[in-house]
């Protein structure tokens, strides 16, 4: 059941381990409970504990909670400056000049978390070119950023107002 999560974490060079007994799948969404929640969460809950992400058409979409959990441990991480942070949460890619620090792999095709200068996880992206070879231009393609919360709000008010 945990494979989609583990596979995703591996792409970030992380081997995060979650307690199988406390991880539940509800339709296509995954949640991590704790010992207090577990006996109280009946089958028809809508949300429980920590939302980990969802699987759609074979692709796993992580939650920001899962990304933050991965960011706490060993994984590929890129720390960006304040201007790049702002651009990234607006959905833009990361340019080489905005990178302050790199931890782990920055090989083309790998995935990396994007952190701000407080080590808070802003999302993740795909490395477009090896950092040391890259000249100017985008080096990490934005795949998911926390600005998504605003996009979700907007799209739900469009559909429902």
């Amino acid at each position: 059941m945990m494979e989609p999560i583990k596979d995703f974490a591996r792409q970030l060079n992380s081997n995060i381990s979650l307690d199988e007994n406390l991880t539940v799948r509800r339709q296509n969404r995954f949640f991590l409970l704790n010992k207090t929640l577990k006996p109280l969460a009946s089958k028809d809950f809508f949300h429980a504990g920590i939302y980990l992400g969802k699987e759609k058409d074979g692709v796993f979409f992580p939650s920001f909670n899962l990304l933050a959990m991965i960011a706490d441990k060993k994984a590929n991480k890129v720390t960006v400056d304040e201007k790049t942070e702002w651009l990234f949460i607006c959905g833009r890619d990361v340019f080489k000049r905005g990178i302050i620090r790199v931890i782990g792999s920055m090989k083309k095709g790998s995935y990396t978390l994007i952190l701000n200068s407080y080590s808070e996880c802003l999302g993740f992206g795909k490395v477009l070119s090896d950092l040391h070879e890259a000249k100017e231009g985008a080096v990490v393609k934005n795949i998911l950023d926390i600005g998504d919360f605003l996009r979700r709000e907007k799209s739900s008010s469009k559909t429902h107002s």
Binding site: N34, T36, L37, L40, A41, F45, F46, H47, A48, G49, I50, Y51, S63, F64, N65, A68, I146, F149
Partner: peptide
């Protein structure tokens, strides 16, 4: 999710 709440079942 945004506020990292861990103790809630809805």
């Amino acid at each position: 999710e945004r506020c990292r709440v861990e103790n809630t079942i809805t």
